[in-house]
C-alpha cells in the first residue's frame, strides 16, 4: 500500500478528518497529502511548521520521569477553538510525520489512534 493510499484511508475512515499528510520533520516539508479538494502549498507548510513547534514542547531531552518513553514525544495534538491538528511519529526520534486535521468538536482520540497505526505501518514498510 502506498503512502498516499495510507493517507486516503486514514482520512476516509476518521470522522471529521478533512486533511491527512505525510511529512519530513528534518526538512520541514509535507511530502504527500490527502484531501477532498486541493490544499495550497502554504497551508501544508504552515501545518508542518505547527508540527515542528508543537513536538518541540515534548522534546525527548525534556522527558519527565513520570512519562512513558514509548509514548512521550511521539504525538501531540495542537488545537484552537476551530480545529485540531494531530501529529504522530513512530518513535520520538523519527523524522517521518503523520498529520491529521480534524474539524472542530470532533472526537480526537480515535483519529490519534488511527494516525499511530498509520505511522507504524509506514515505518514498518520503510524498514
Amino acid at each position: 500500500m502506498t503512502i498516499k493510499a495510507q493517507l486516503d484511508q486514514l482520512r476516509e475512515t476518521s470522522f471529521g478528518c478533512v486533511l491527512t499528510a505525510f511529512g519530513d520533520l528534518s526538512s520541514g516539508l509535507i511530502l504527500r497529502s490527502s484531501s477532498e479538494t486541493p490544499v495550497p502549498r502554504e497551508v501544508l507548510d504552515a501545518l508542518c511548521d505547527d508540527a515542528t513547534r508543537s513536538l518541540a514542547v515534548a522534546s525527548r531531552h525534556t522527558r519527565p520521569d513520570a512519562t512513558a518513553a514509548s509514548v512521550y514525544g511521539t504525538s501531540v495534538v495542537s488545537f484552537t477553538a476551530q480545529r485540531s491538528h494531530v501529529f504522530v511519529r513512530h518513535d520520538p526520534e523519527a523524522g517521518d510525520l503523520i498529520c491529521a486535521v480534524i474539524e472542530k468538536a470532533q472526537a480526537i482520540a480515535p483519529v490519534l489512534q488511527s494516525a499511530r497505526e498509520t505511522a507504524a505501518r509506514i515505518a514498518e514498510a520503510g524498514s
Binding site: T67, A68, V71, V77, Q82
Partner: peptide, 13 residues
C-alpha cells in the same frame, strides 16, 4: 489567530 486561544495536548502515557 486574532487573539484566540490556542493549545496543545501531549500524551504522557
Amino acid at each position: 489567530g486574532a487573539g484566540r486561544a490556542e493549545g496543545i495536548a501531549i500524551p504522557l502515557s
